[in-house]
Design a protein around this nucleic acid. Structure first.
Lengths: 335, 335
DNA sequence: CTGTTAGCGCTTTCAT
DNA sequence: ATGAAAGCGCTAACAG
């Protein structure tokens, strides 16, 4: 592997001249620049990023920290991140933490030592003190999807309150009155916000939030299935006429439970999902759901990060919210 | 951030002694070692990986190259990789290529410059000359899932021929005689091997391969759906009594088409999938499928890689095949 | 505009 | 057993 000295020797100049010719930040005579470029090509010279990183304390690399890779939202957003990062000449290192906070802290410490220039977290929770520390130390950071409303950290998320509001509103406008909410982890801001949107839409129509129709901490399709089965064990008069799931897998589990009870969707009970995963279109009936612009989240967040890394941390934190939309398919009808 | 010199100063020794005390490879007096360790703790010293990497030409990092993150097999295998890599003190950098060969080549070149110690590829195809080059240059490399049978490269894959053989055999034993195969990209060794397993199982029973019942280059649930619809347009007498899909999403699309045609599964037509994705259990009826040990693939492959990196490339390449199993659920009955 | 020098933080001879 | 010195490959003063 050729070094900068090999290039310098071949071009008949000093190493620093090569460095300058290549950086473009300093003026070099057109003549020598041409010679250098020629030598670079001849030797197929490629700068050693480790040496550069050691010298400069930066590596043109950003880290993306995700809780897992099972949820399709991450790949979607990661595509957006990759898109922007590549365009700016940045490399990405991806860390999947498996929802393990200690592992995440260790990973981040490791990344800092490796002079990673910027951080994108999908894992923010109220327990994420290490992220706040990172920000306080001046490391450019942006939060995606999950955000920390109180903290002075840049974030790009999809407006959860608005999404749940739109979804609930849609159900109400279609004539549904007893709308159940099968919701995720109450510890996550995201789900609390969705609850607020649900509440707000009901309130606008003068409908009460019936706590018997709200289920918290339901994860994945199995628990969705179980929660719905339980709901259907109550007296028929207490049943909802529509069920809003806070994620598509839950919605699928719910649909399964409804069908198993011998009920028709949407005639007997409507189902609305959240997330728009690919297979939602394949179910019988196809799932009406709240779609979120995850790719765009990745793009917008990474653009923000690029600006942060340039402006060396003076910019005011910004909390961007993108707008979700209701994707109308067949699992919601008209009353 | 404390450097080795800070530690040396505090411990009252030279930097080289600190280096030695920490490496463990050289004998240091118990006394000085204790002093060094104390200073390390006091300053919370952590070696700079860039400096270390620059000096040693290695970074205790392995790269994992995947074609995408949408297929759940990757997360499963990546968990296995992470498990083993962490246990050995290795960091992982994950590259998603989006199936773009040029991007992959560029990424790999970049990783080599960064002194990545080992490579795990999920992306091997007959066009992967860059992988062979990498191996020829002595970079420890292992191929996962997709392999190159002819090339002298370590690989761990799941036996595709055996999986398809087992699946087809199962259908035959249940009494099915006209078994369609909806298969993936013919360019991928993986699918050609599955075809061979299908062929072999049929041959053993003296059944012919009917080419009208075999479809190639079908990708994703939509194309599976379309392919099945087309198949059902033929004369009823030409219909299969069972359909073997080379992936679960395809199987779901196929089930949808069968149901849309007013047929019952498995009474009128059986469906067998391949991959065992999580949602397969949720379909109506639950999908019988060939399950592959992807987590184990990651574990075994990474253990192999660890050995390769230690033995500096002398070991003979090994092509390991893991065994898939038929997961019996409801989409296949008895004739 | 360009060469010389020093140094990023670490390991590894070579002495002692 | 330990210290001094050199060098991994690069960039950024500092001279000229």
């Amino acid at each position: 592997m050729a070094t900068i000295h090999d290039v310098a020797a071949l071009a008949g100049v000093s190493a620093s001249t090569v460095s300058r010719a290549l950086s473009g930040k300093v003026i070099v005579s057109a003549n020598t620049k041409a010679k250098v470029l020629e030598a670079v090509k001849a030797l197929n010279y490629q700068p050693n990023p480790l040496a550069k990183g050691l010298k400069e304390g930066s590596t043109r690399t950003i880290a993306v920290i995700v809780p897992n890779l099972k949820n399709l939202l991450f790949p979607a957003a990661i595509s957006g991140i990759t898109e922007v990062a590549s365009a700016h000449g940045y490399t990405i290192v991806l860390c999947s933490t498996d929802e393990d906070l200690e592992k995440e802290k260790a990973d981040v410490a490791n990344l800092v030592r490796r002079k990673i220039d910027g951080f994108v977290f999908f894992t923010a929770t109220r327990k994420s003190q290490h992220i706040l520390d990172l920000v306080a130390l001046g490391h450019p950071t942006v939060l995606l999807v999950r955000h920390l409303p109180e903290a002075p950290v840049n974030s790009v998320s999809v407006d959860n309150e608005l999404g749940a509001y739109k979804g609930t509103k849609f159900l109400v406008e279609r004539g549904y009155r007893r709308i159940a909410l099968i919701c995720g982890d109450r510890d996550l801001v995201l789900y609390r916000e969705r609850f607020r949107g649900y509440e707000k839409a009901l309130a606008e129509e003068g409908l009460p939030v019936e706590f018997a129709l709200v289920r918290w901490n339901v994860r994945g399709w199995r628990q969705g299935h179980a929660a719905m089965k339980e709901l259907l064990q109550s007296d028929r008069s207490a049943w909802p006429d529509a069920v809003f799931a806070s994620s598509d897998p839950k919605a699928l589990g719910i649909m399964k439970a409804i069908k198993e009870a011998g009920l028709r969707i949407p005639e007997d009970m409507a189902v609305m999902g959240y997330d728009n995963m690919e297979l939602g279109e394949l179910t019988e009936p196809a799932l009406t759901t709240v779609a979120q612009p995850f790719y765009k989240t990745g793009v917008v967040g990474t653009e923000r990060l690029m600006r942060l890394m340039q402006s060396k941390g003076d910019a005011e934190p910004e909390q961007v919210k993108l707008e979700p939309t209701v994707l109308i398919r067949q699992s919601v009808g008209h009353v």
